[in-house]
């Protein structure tokens, strides 16, 4: 189950996600999350409270980023935990969605 909260500022739409991103999120991503972002110029997604992303969730995330990029919307994702980053690295997600999307702590 994934839940999200939207905070609109002058510069961007801040979307705070909470829960697991897996196959059960198919509808919420395509029917609620993407439509909520599609008319914005800048979107920042916060993953502080996302603790698990499985392979289906990775597919949804790639789909979300590609959909927004196709519409010239800037999207960045911040506060990704180490477990999820490890899977991103294994799957070479930055190569697929663009390394500029992931905001990593130096």
């Amino acid at each position: 189950m994934l839940e999200f909260e939207k905070i609109k500022t002058q510069r961007l739409l801040f979307v705070k996600c909470k829960g697991d991103l897996d196959i059960e999120c198919e509808e919420i991503v395509h029917e609620e999350l993407i439509p909520a972002m599609i008319h914005e110029k800048n979107v920042r997604v916060d993953f502080s409270n996302v603790h698990f992303v499985d392979s289906s969730g990775m597919g949804l995330l790639i789909s979300l980023v590609k959909t927004l990029k196709d519409k010239d919307i800037n999207i960045t994702i911040q506060n990704i935990n180490d477990d999820i980053l490890e899977v991103f690295d294994l799957l070479q997600i930055p190569q697929i969605i663009g390394s500029d999307v992931l905001l990593l702590e130096s």
Partner: peptide
């Protein structure tokens, strides 16, 4: 907070 929960599509 977090009101956009997945809906039952069955």
């Amino acid at each position: 907070m977090f009101k956009n929960k997945i809906s039952d599509k069955n």
